[in-house]
Amino acid sequence: MIYTVLPLSVRTVVSNDDLLNEILLRLPVISIVLFKLVSKRWLSLIKSPTFIRRRSRIPNIDTPSGLFIEHRLDTNVYGLVPLDIRIRSRLENTFKTGACIRSNAIVMQSCNGLFLCYVRPNHKFCIYNPTVNLFKMLPEPHYSEPEHHLFIKMAFDPTKSPYYKVMHATFINDYYPPESYRIQIYSSETGIWSNVYEHSGPFEGLVSAIYCNNAIHWINHGDNGKLHYKLDFVNTAVILTKIQLPVTVKRKRSCKLFESRGSLLLLGMDNTCSHDQLNVYKMGNRDSEWSLKYSVNKRRISLGGVWCIALGEREEDSFMVIELNGKVVLYNFVLKTFRALPEVQLMLSKIRFPLCNIFLLTASFASV
């Protein structure tokens, strides 16, 4: 057996808890989680409430480390497919939290490390952090009749605030399409629902809306796909803004919104080339105009076959997960390489119903 003798400087650091803590605090969250396996001492340091509290205050959004996939819709069983090669897959990863939500929770949204969940059969909502295995049941919203429920969305950006907000909307009347909506805001800072607004507008696309930069964004296909809408609810008032889509994007349901690392992204079919291609556009900081980020040959990729888009800390780490020739693969935008995700194929073989829920999992020490 060969033993490695560490240099004195390294032994000095790893034997000093204060120095080791300072080093660990500066690492990506997923690396910290994996370092729990180094030793019992490292596990104790990382699991300590003081360390978790300090790390949660560091404003950072890590690159997504996995896909959280619902693959048994009748029993709400989720599997974890790693995007980081250091993580093992879990094909039967049900919720590990308390009995009050175990096996009854449905993931509705993933937002920078936190999951917004719906808990049956009592029609409750909760926030769950799978990295640190913590959850919080939310108080019941006002006017929360299930038959009038339209949508609920969470807003959380640790680079802006340690607190999250949840937006809940219900129909005010029984007409379809509804003429107006009642919107309520929950804040984790105050712990209550407040700011009840009545709002009217083209909300038909809200069910598939996404959160980015203090607002909910969606494309209203009733406008022939010409506009995307921004509903700001994090600030003092609910404000609806119309934003023009890029002129080169084809209309009629040929575009889709994504969010990654605080950036709003638009995937759309380009109509200026002899052969259609998929373009990824990025919204500017002032939410005023789109700029072209990536172009992908569309001959083998359909718009509906794109599961998610993720921007890396480095350009060469940016990717999207797509269905390609009956397989699910990770495509790197810069390197133009494909990497198979066989674990997803295994899950797909077990599904008795069409796959409907896929969420990006980002490691986070955020409090709930």
Rank of each mutant, 00 (worst) to 15 (best):
K96I: 03
I127R: 00
T131N: 07
M137R: 12
F135K: 03
I127A: 01
M108V: 13
N104F: 06
V132I: 15
E140C: 11
S89H: 09
N93F: 02
H142C: 11
I101S: 02
N133M: 12
L114T: 00
R88F: 09
P146S: 10
N129K: 02
L114D: 00
C117M: 12
G98N: 13
R88H: 09
I87S: 03
L114W: 00
C111K: 07
S110V: 01
Y118H: 14
F115N: 07
K124N: 09
F125P: 03
Y118I: 04
S89I: 01
L83K: 01
V119H: 04
G113K: 00
P121S: 13
F95T: 05
M108A: 14
F115V: 14
P121G: 15
F115H: 07
H142K: 14
S89M: 02
R102L: 10
I87N: 05
N133H: 14
R86F: 07
R90Y: 07
R86Y: 06
L134C: 11
D84V: 04
V132T: 14
P146E: 09
A105K: 03
E92G: 02
N122P: 03
L91D: 05
S110P: 07
E140M: 13
K136D: 12
P141I: 08
S144Q: 11
E140N: 15
I87H: 01
K124Q: 12
I85T: 10
R90D: 06
I101P: 08
